[in-house]
Structures are given as structure tokens and as C-alpha cells.
Amino acid sequence: MQIEQSERDGVVVLSTSGRFNMMSAPRVKTRIDETVAAGSARIVVDLSEVDFIDSSGLGALIGGLKTARQAGGDLRIAAAGEQVVTVLKLTNLDRILTPFDTVEDAIHEW
């Protein structure tokens, strides 16, 4: 999994790709923690290139959400594919990790 980082309108966008699973989840969580520690607590995780997420990936997103909120910010997800959306619903996490259609929507509606 690749993690690309950019910044738009004061929001850090982390773009991930491939399988967001037990292999890659710790790296994503570490990157979120580092981003928040560096002073950026408003984060959008772009999932447009993620074709699979498992419960480890969900755990990393929830952990990141908590880290961002504790720092006064938030974590949003954008452009989730069918598998990710389905898994969020089945785990009831769509209520706290509401997927935005696009990264732009996630940023503009902040």
C-alpha cells in the first residue's frame, strides 16, 4: 500500500491504495498519528484507490478518528468503493465514519 500526503485548505489528505488490511493498517495509523502530532488534526483519508478493507483497516481509521478528535480536529473518509461502504454498514461504523463522495466534498463541508 502506498500512502500519499497532500494539503488543501488546511486539511491534510492521505491517499491510500490497494488492500487496507492487517499488513498496511499499522502504517496508516502511524501516518495519521504523525500528522496530528505535527499539528494537523483535520484529516481526510482518500479511499478511492482502496479495493479492500478489513477489520484491521477499520480499527486504524477509528484509532485515527479518536486521535484527531482528541487534538480538536476530525478524520473523514472519502471516495470509498463498494466493498468499503458495505463493510462500514455491516459494522455500523457508517454512523461515525460517514463516507463523503469525494475528497472535495469532505473538505468543503468542514
Binding site: 477489520s55 480499527g59 478518528l65 479518536k66 459494522t91 461504523l93
Partner: peptide, 18 residues
Amino acid sequence: MPDELAESGRGLPLARAI
């Protein structure tokens, strides 16, 4: 299924749901 803010424990409940 665990609490929304739990960071683990969803694997088996997710499999059972499917």
C-alpha cells in the same frame, strides 16, 4: 459487534454478518 469507538474485535462479528 463492539462499541463504535473500539479499535478491534470486529472480525468475527463481521464474518458472521456476511
